[in-house]
Nucleic acid binder design. Structure first.
Length: 962
DNA sequence: ACTACGACGTTTTTT
DNA sequence: ACGTCGTAGT
């Protein structure tokens, strides 16, 4: 884009160096390009320096990118712009507070200060932990609030309320609420009344009016609830037809809430005090204190205001951020850029009306801020709108189609109130071709269906995409992105793809604490702590291959393997969390991005002086519980399909987009919002339950008023439609929509005829799904239920031969060996792989890697099949060599390996009756090839027999060894 | 055609 | 704990 000249509208914005501008910058209209050009143009003007222009971005990455692109467009160097105010709201507020805001808390009547050592608490899990600690103190000190605390299901739900209030600019002070905050808490009856009336409007039936949605929704009013005695009966509430009586609007809204407000006030205010006492701020408080500071300290505000303020992604700003922008603007040179159709961060308190009702809010906020003193000194009635209408990304068909998504009903009977023609600025494509396929498909197995379609698309001219040279070419994997509403589906798809060796790059946060790496680290940390040591041992022993029975015995006798005990000693002497983590990861051979990310997160949250392992264990447990996500840079690179959430894809583009998992309950997601004390516009602060002693019985009663209110506040699916819009407009050339067996209305209402896809995925190359152990499978009817196939080998011997390595490492070496044997161009990445390569190079016969082996034998009366995978067959004219790679450092498992190789021996003997068959182990650590003398078939049968004799008596289920 | 009721299945997004 | 969908009954 940098190479192009701006179009007329873009140029208009670039040249608009003064006055208030609100820019409607739709998807792919070259927004960043235009903003950076405008920024550079401002710098061209005399007397305007980088320090005079505040440029607010949504993310830190965006800020960094902006800087780079500004540098490319003007005479300033990167070093000159390093400290330029190109930042996020949070970042800017942070700097402001550290520089000039130590006393900000005093403006709320908080008797404490921010200091240079006050830290920003970024990790939510850690904050929730602190918050729980705060609540328990609070509960001790405030017996008068106990009834509210009893109503809550989780104490941390109050943290949500605090965040939401803070985002709206509602703050507590020592003696009440800051400025007009309390009026927000009370709600806006007139606005509510309108909602009530809309919901209570009679519907039009075939013969005359039928009951209103509200009356309908209130049927079953008392079902599954228990109200206080002042509640009306359903019959009383609904005795009118077709609408309920208007008096219920007042009766539901008017509620004595002084105690509730006092409770929330005290929690909120004292939590601020608590945080400062503990020397931390959270994201919300950052903005709160910055706002209060700018409001109260007039001299300071004027000294930190800017000549120019630009806000990017304005549709994602919260109300407090809008107000901050006004306070930071010294003049009316205010430019906000965004696209309401891409507002998808409501859960982060973004308020889409900031941009949709820009002028109205601008006026209201100015009035509010100036009510007692002139804080916004510039006129706000002259607002110029600029619409960017040329799209540089998608074809016209995609652009036209994308508009439909904003009008799709998200439930079976939803009516969407949207005038597509009026509300949506049409975009014009600039592509010179339009070969777009826009399709929908369903399948009972959605993951498989998507992979099937991916394979049909790759290399298919029907789905041609634009190449570097502008010519159409068949697509490859990297041209395809699968976008999902939920992270979970994306991860599921990723694991399906892995099974078929389809290259996938999952981009975005992952549940780091649910990974094998984290689980093992947690286990070792636990077994360092006496209190949880058994839970830790169980995980560690199981990972080492002990059966459940064996683990049980070891735990009972506390007879832990000596190598593990000595490892525990080493861990105990480690100084830092990072040190412990590194030792554990080394032991298991984890040298991956997940391990690195874990170390980084742990070191970041627990500074090196923290020796409190209990706290670390708790942190890891809670992070696991909360599915906390962290960015892990784990992408294989190369030609991979991208899988990411729609949120993660915002701002990006992909030649082909598959929008997946448009299913019931997932898109839109159901549930949530179960908080019992909540703030909601326009009804204000409410509680859904009361603790009270009525009917002679103390109980958590349902709040009948809230039940009526909530039926008028029908759920808003606009944001879900916008998500769909964002997803579609990521696509350059083709869009596909996918659903499973129960598609969402969002899918059903698409103006497309869905096709049914029969899953038929071809595995791309073999995958390694088995350890090189044997499985014995027995026909199911012949054994008692609950009796699973089980391993022929004794797993105990594997517990310590892997010292310092692990399954991951073993898999990696095996994978390398397989690829190398098949002639793939792969470079050995460690000593073991070099040994394998040298060994394979020394062979002159035919190489066959990863051959399945099945040996049917008769044990007693039963037909049993023993199966396994032969790592390597080396076939020459007169001989066949069986080779099994072992990554062990020690040698004490050889007797067990002998059983395994014996099975292979008999399989190969049968397949090559005329050749001599040899069996050998190849120890990759030192390159030794050890010949093994195979057991006879009878001896194998005996072993199985004996194993069953052991397994049968107690009937315990044994795990399948995988 | 409309209403009432019960069964059903699910629980997100992240600066 | 919730909202939505399907169905039985008027």
């Amino acid at each position: 884009m940098t190479d192009f000249e701006p179009n007329d509208k873009q140029q208009e914005l670039i040249d608009a160096t003064s006055g208030i501008h609100v820019v409607d910058a739709g998807a792919g209209t070259g927004k960043t390009f235009t903003i950076t050009r405008r920024y550079a143009n401002l710098l061209q003007q005399d007397e305007t320096e980088p320090d005079d222009i505040l440029l607010i971005t949504f993310t830190n990455n965006a800020a960094a990118e902006m800087k780079e692109r500004v540098v490319a467009n003007c005479d300033y160097s990167m070093s000159a712009l390093r400290d330029a105010p190109i930042n996020t709201f949070h970042g800017h507020c942070h700097e402001l507070l550290l520089r000039d805001g130590f006393s900000a808390p005093t403006h709320l009547g908080v008797d404490d200060r921010i200091t240079s050592s006050t830290r920003l608490l970024e990790n939510e899990v850690v904050e929730e932990d602190r918050f729980r600690e705060f609540i328990s103190q609070f509960a001790d000190e405030h017996p008068e609030h106990h009834d509210f605390l009893r109503v809550l299901r989780e104490n941390t739900s109050l943290l949500e309320v605090i965040r939401e209030l803070a985002a709206k600019g509602i703050f507590p002070t020592s003696d009440g609420w800051y400025r007009n905050g309390e009026s927000y808490l009370d709600g806006d009856f007139e606005a509510f009344e309108e909602l009530f009336e809309t919901a209570n409007e009679p519907n039009e039936g075939a013969n005359g009016p039928t009951q209103s949605d509200l009356r309908d929704d209130l049927s079953g009013f008392e079902r599954d609830r228990c109200f206080l005695p002042d509640a009306p009966a359903e019959s009383e509430l609904r005795d009118n037809y077709p609408s309920i009586d208007h008096e219920w609007a007042d009766r539901a809204f008017d509620e004595e809430r002084d105690a509730l407000k006092a409770f929330v006030h005290d929690i909120y205010f004292e939590y601020i005090e608590f945080a400062l006492r503990q020397n931390y701020l959270n994201f919300s408080f950052l903005q709160m204190f910055a706002f209060v500071l700018l409001c109260e300290d007039h001299a300071l505000r004027e000294s930190v205001q800017f000549d120019h303020v630009m806000v990017d992604e304005f549709q994602d700003t919260s109300e407090i951020q809008f107000k901050l922008a006004l306070l930071l603007a010294g003049t009316d040179n205010l430019c906000v850029v965004g696209d309401w159709k891409q507002s998808i961060y409501g859960f982060q308190y973004a308020s889409v009306d900031n941009i949709r009702q820009f002028e109205e809010r601008l006026g209201n906020y100015k009035r509010e801020l100036n009510s007692d003193s002139e804080r916004v000194a510039f006129p706000v009635d002259d607002v110029t709108g600029i619409k960017l209408e040329k799209n540089y990304r998608s074809t016209q068909s995609i652009l036209n189609f994308s508009r439909h998504s904003l009008g799709l009903p998200a439930t079976s009977n939803e009516e969407v109130d949207l005038d597509i023609e009026d509300d949506i600025t049409p975009l014009t494509a600039t592509t010179d071709h339009d070969n777009s396929n826009i399709e929908a498909f369903t399948s009972d197995d959605e993951c498989e269906a998507i992979l099937t379609r991916v394979q049909e698309i790759v290399g298919n001219r029907e789905y041609a995409v634009e190449g570097e040279d502008g010519e159409l070419r068949p697509p490859s994997h990297e041209d395809i992105a699968v976008l999902t509403r939920t992270r979970r589906f994306g991860r599921e798809l990723q694991s399906h793809a892995r099974e078929y060796n389809i290259p996938v790059a999952y981009e975005g946060g992952v549940e780091l604490f649910g990974t094998e790496q984290a689980i093992l680290l947690l286990a070792w940390l636990r077994l360092l702590e006496d209190r949880h040591s058994k839970r830790g041992w169980a995980v560690v022993l199981e990972e080492a291959g002990y059966t459940l029975d064996e683990v049980k015995t070891i735990l009972e006798n506390e007879s832990y393997p000596s190598n593990m005990l000595s490892f525990r000693e080493r861990l105990a002497s480690a100084e830092t969390v990072g040190g412990i983590a590194r030792l554990v990861f080394d032991r298991y051979g984890f040298e991956d991005a997940y391990a690195d990310a874990l170390v980084a997160v742990l070191q970041g949250t627990f500074d090196s002086t923290t020796h409190n392992r209990g706290a670390i264990v708790r942190f890891m447990e809670q992070s696991l519980e909360a599915d906390a996500t962290h960015d892990v840079d784990d992408n294989p690179g190369g030609d991979s399909i991208t899988v990411q959430t729609i949120h993660a894809a915002k701002g990006l583009e992909h030649p082909i987009v598959i929008l997946a998992n448009i299913n019931q309950y997932s898109f839109p997601p159901s549930g949530g919002g179960a908080d019992r004390i909540r703030y909601e516009d326009p009804v204000g602060l409410r509680q859904t339950k009361h603790y009270a002693d009525a009917h002679g019985r103390p109980h958590i009663y349902d709040n009948w008023r809230y039940r009526i209110l909530s039926k008028c506040l029908n759920r808003d699916y606009d944001e879900e439609r916008r998500l769909m819009y964002v997803a579609i407009t990521r696509a350059e050339s083709h869009v596909l929509f996918s659903a499973g067996s129960s598609p969402s209305p969002l899918f059903e209402n698409l103006p497309l005829e869905p096709e049914t896809v029969e899953p038929d995925v071809e595995a791309a190359g073999t995958t390694r799904t088995e350890q090189s152990r044997l499985q014995v499978s027995v026909p199911v009817p012949d054994i008692p239920a609950g009796q699973s196939p089980h391993s022929l080998m004794d797993d105990r011997v594997f517990s310590d031969v892997d010292e310092g390595r692990g399954i991951e490492f073993g898999n990696q070496v095996h994978d390398f060996a397989e690829q190398y044997a098949e002639g793939a161009v792969v470079e050995p990445s460690n000593k073991d792989e070099r040994h394998v390569a040298e060994f394979l190079d020394s062979l002159d016969g035919e190489l066959r890697a990863e051959e399945n082996a099945y040996l049917p034998v008769t044990v007693g009366e039963q037909q049993v099949t023993i199966s396994g995978i032969i790592d390597l067959l080396h076939v020459t004219a007169e001989r066949v060599d069986i080779v099994d790679y072992k990554t062990d450092l020690g040698r004490h498992a050889e007797s067990e390996y002998r059983k395994q190789l014996s099975v292979y021996y008999h399989v190969v003997r049968a397949a090559f009756p005329d050749s001599r068959v040899t069996t050998a182990l190849f120890y990759t650590a030192d390159g030794d090839r050890i010949e093994i003398d195979p057991l006879s078939k009878d001896e194998i049968v005996d072993l199985i027999d004996r194993d069953y004799a052991e397994a049968q008596p107690d009937g315990e289920e044994e795990p399948i060894i995988r």
